[in-house]
Amino acid sequence: MISMLAEESLLEVCAIEQHSLDEYESEMPRWCKGCGDHGVLAALQRVLRKNNLEPENVVSVSGIGCSSRLPHYLNTYGFHGIHGRALPISTGVRLARPELPVITIMGDGDCFSIGGNHWLHAIRYNINAVVLVLDNEVYALTKMQASPTTPDGTKTNTTPHGTYLQPLNPLSAVMGMTNVSFLAQTATWLPAHLDETIEKAWNHHGLSFVRILQRCPVFMPKAFGEGGLNFPVVFLENEDGIPVHPLLRKRGETQAHDHRDINEAQRVAVSVDPAPMGLIYQNRDLPTYEDIRWQRKDRPDRATFLERLDAAVDRYTVT
C-alpha cells in the first residue's frame, strides 16, 4: 500500500512537465535593434520558466506604446489594450479570476501620464499583479515627444528648444501613496539584476511595482549615460533584497538598505543621483484588494441564490 502510494506520487512528479523557454515565445518581436524591450521580454520568459507556469494560466496586459507590444511576443494569454488603461483591465481580470497571475506592462507615458490616475489608485488597491514600467524617458512609438520622465532640457519634437520642466520621479510618487506594497528599480543593461528583480516581484503577494530603466536606441540613445555606460547607480543591498552579484559591484556603489522601513524607503525613493537600484520597499502584510473583496462575498449555491434573490424582491412586494 505504502509503496503503491510512493509510486503514484513519483509518477505524479514525473508527470509535471517542465516547460521550456520556447513555450513562452510567440511571434518574432518587432522592436528596434538595441531596444531594452527585448531584454525585458527575455527576462520575463526566464521567470515564467523558472516558476514553471502553464502558459495558459498567465495573463499579460499592456497599454499602448512600444513596450506595450510585449503581450504579442509572449505565449500566454495577453491583452494589448488602449493607451494608459492597462491597470484597470488588470484589475478587472484579478477581480473576476483571482486564480490567474497577471503581469502588466506599460511605458512611461502610458503609466505616468495618460494613465496617471489609474497608476496611483492601483497602488492603493494593491491588486496582486506584477507591474512593469519600461521607462525610456520618451514617447517613442509616436516618434519622440517629451514624456513625464524626460530629463530637463531634452530636445524632442514637441520641445525643440529643450523641455521646460523637471522630470517626474515615479519612485517618490509611488512611495507617497497609501498602501504601497512593493517597489523596485532595475535596468535592462543589468540583465542579472533585471531577472532577479522580476523574480522577486513575481513572488510578492500584492502589487509589485517595478520601474525598469531602458534606453531607446533611436530617439534617446544618450539617455542613462548612453544606456548605462556612464550612469551613476547605487545598488541597495539586503540579504532579503535583490542580490547584487559580484560583477555588478563594478557598475556602481552598494548601500545597505532596509526595504521594510518605509521612512528609509521614502528617503531612497527621493534620491535620483545616483539612481537607486534594487528593492526599495516591500510590505508583505498588506491584504490585496481582490482578497478583501472575495473574502467578503458569499458564493451561494443555486438554491440559496434564488432564495436570497426572492427575499430581495420581497422587499419591494406590495401586494
Binding site: 478587472g92 484579478r94 473576476a96 490567474l100
Partner: peptide, 10 residues
Amino acid sequence: GVALGASYAG
C-alpha cells in the same frame, strides 16, 4: 476598464 478586464477573463 475593470468591467472589460473581467469580461475578457470570462
